[in-house]
């Protein structure tokens, strides 16, 4: 759980860094996308690893939940937890929403099935116009709102998940624990801001795409 979680966390950071290139303009962004595509088999290796991690993460989550339910067949009539957080208690829920989101996200941007009208443009150099795809997708408010909304469970999931992973791997002690906890929350929030800013910027018009415009 912790290992696969941390792998995906690494991906989330990298993915965010790449995504933020959108603020550098269509050229840079498209070039970055092309670079990624050109990695060829490496890209597929990375994708396979990530998918496997995701699969194991989901499977162990299901197993844990199942075992934990079984460990307390009769619940309390009254149960007042003292220190646990909303994020920690809703890991399964946020996880399910995120899984659904990942499916949609892949269908949207990787397989380009959900919004074909904006997903298959090319730029002046004949490369896939990823920038256009992103910006135009997010010009549609339901899409933008869905993406921003999906970042809320991601933020929650990470705010518990990151420090939890370090605890599970035994990589902290009582001096580091508060540091990790706060850092995890801070990072989760930054990730939320980072990711959510892109649909927000597109929707608000801060980032624009004009068809046919050549840089």
């Amino acid at each position: 759980m912790a290992v696969t979680g941390l792998m995906m966390f690494g991906f989330i950071l990298g993915h965010l860094a790449g995504n933020l290139l959108i603020y550098a303009g269509p050229d840079t962004f498209n070039a970055y996308a092309k670079k990624l595509q050109s990695l060829g088999e490496f890209l597929w290796v990375a994708r396979c690893i990530l998918l496997t991690a995701l699969l194991f993460h989901v499977l162990s989550a299901i197993q844990l939940t199942f075992e934990n339910r079984k460990a307390r067949p009769i619940g309390y009539r009254r149960y007042d937890p003292e220190v646990t957080t909303y994020a920690a208690r809703t890991m399964m829920l946020s996880g399910i929403i995120l899984t659904a989101f990942i499916v949609y996200h892949l269908l949207h941007f990787t397989f380009r099935l959900t919004h074909p009208e904006v997903s298959n443009l090319h730029d002046a150099r004949g490369n896939h116009h990823v920038y256009a795809m992103v910006v135009q997708s997010f010009r549609q408010w339901p899409v933008a709102v869905a993406y921003i909304a999906a970042m809320v469970p991601l933020c929650l999931h990470l705010s518990h998940g990151i420090s939890s992973a370090f605890q599970s791997l035994g990589l902290q002690n009582n001096r580091l624990l508060p540091v990790f906890k706060n850092a995890a929350r801070g990072i989760a929030l930054l990730i939320f801001v980072g990711y959510a800013s892109i649909p927000a910027a597109c929707l608000s018009g801060l980032i624009q795409y004009t068809a046919g415009r050549t840089p």
Binding site: E67, R72, P81
Partner: peptide, 20 residues
């Protein structure tokens, strides 16, 4: 059950044993 790092154990422990 399994530990999912809620730290409720530490809060409930009458001897305040640390979850670290």
């Amino acid at each position: 059950g399994n530990c999912t790092n809620h730290f409720e154990c530490e809060a409930a422990c009458p001897k305040e044993i640390n979850a670290d």
